[in-house]
Amino acid sequence: MHFIVCIKQVPDSAQIRVHPVTNTIMRQGVPTIINPYDLFALETALRLRDEQGGEVTVLTMGPPSAEDALRKALTFGADRAVLLTDRFFAGSDTLATSYALAQAIRKIGQTWGAPDIVFAGKQTIDGDTAQVGPGIARRLGLNQLTYISKIAGLDAAARTIDLERRAEGGVQVLRSALPCLVTMLEGSAEIRRGAFADALRAARAEIVTWSAAAAGVEDLQKCGLRGSPTVVKRVFAPTPRADKAKAIEPKPRAKETAEDLIAALFEAKPALAADLERLAAGL
């Protein structure tokens, strides 16, 4: 069987900083890690491979430095790693990311065999949208199984998988045909320690690196900023206000301070004062 695991290299949330003007995450100088939710997806895929046989391919999209996350995944026991990197992917939101990853998964299927299950974490800690996994499933026409807390069984001969899904008020027990896409919850498995042999193999392994063209990404208008309608809010952030807040000096008595505050408010908002006067007259 062939299992594909989508992972992402993210800033370490314990050392994360936010830009004071644009309110975007500042990644410069912040250590990176594998998205914690993706580790549970990777562990689940590795366990199924150990039970059923087959291969685990790890895929990520990011800058060349994301190779570090892929090598880390190889130390856990993944069979191969694919890095999707190209300047055309810069600034991608969830829509553009799911498109690029779906195209890369098609290419992986053509190269090493069609995937039986595509795994991903529930969400990423730097985006928290939980949209990329479902977006990939929609683009590839895969059965979509989200918020999975346990793999109850996999029947390779019957091409079915049994799962437990966390739902509001309880747990749903599901059975799905393969192929499918599964997003795993936190705590769904105990993360293994990488073996020494896998660590040596990961250090020497060749990371398969694809550009947009090599991965078969045909429509570049769907990639990066051009294919990311939700990024407009982030890129074109509002400029800081030119007018500054007026300071009110506190008085010895709270009533006097309140009167000064109301007077300043009415001076800045004369229409508000007029509305309140009309309201008072009506009473």
Rank of each mutant, 00 (worst) to 15 (best):
E256T: 09
A258Y: 06
F88A: 15
E259W: 11
V10Y: 05
K122C: 05
Q144V: 12
R80E: 12
L83P: 02
E186D: 13
F196C: 07
L154H: 15
L59E: 03
L200P: 01
P250A: 10
A73G: 13
G133D: 07
A104P: 00
R166H: 10
A66W: 06
R193I: 11
D68Y: 05
Q131C: 05
D243N: 14
Q221C: 12
R204I: 01
Q131K: 11
P238Q: 01
F266A: 15
A242E: 15
R106F: 00
R138L: 07
T146F: 02
A242F: 14
P64E: 02
R234Y: 13
D79N: 14
Q123V: 02
I262F: 07
V18G: 03
E218H: 13
L185W: 03
Q110K: 14
P64W: 03
R192E: 13
A114E: 14
A237H: 11
D128M: 05
G127H: 04
T129W: 04
I248L: 09
D275V: 14
T124Q: 05
V208M: 09
K269D: 11
M1V: 10
A81H: 03
Q221D: 13
N23C: 13
R278G: 04
L178S: 04
L276T: 10
A100H: 00
L101W: 03
E55Y: 15
A280F: 11
R71P: 00
L279K: 14
V171M: 10
G194I: 11
V30S: 06
K246W: 12
K107I: 05
R87A: 14
A100R: 00
R138M: 13
L59I: 02
L48V: 11
R166T: 15
I191K: 04
L46M: 07
A212V: 05
I33P: 02
F89C: 14
G133E: 06
T57S: 11
E55S: 14
A254G: 05
R71Q: 04
V182N: 02
L265T: 15
T160I: 10
L276D: 08
D79Q: 08
T230C: 10
T32Q: 14
E67L: 03
E267F: 02
I25S: 06
L74N: 04
G224D: 00
I151P: 00
T239G: 14
L46G: 02
F119Y: 09
G53P: 10
E164L: 08
I148L: 08
I25T: 10
G187M: 07
K72Q: 12
D12N: 13
G91P: 02
I262S: 08
Y37G: 01
P179K: 05
L178M: 11
L59Y: 04
F196G: 09
L225G: 01
A242C: 14
T94G: 07
C6V: 12
L174G: 10
A271I: 07
T57K: 11
S98G: 11
T111E: 15
D219Q: 08
A242N: 12
R47K: 11
A78R: 01
D38N: 03
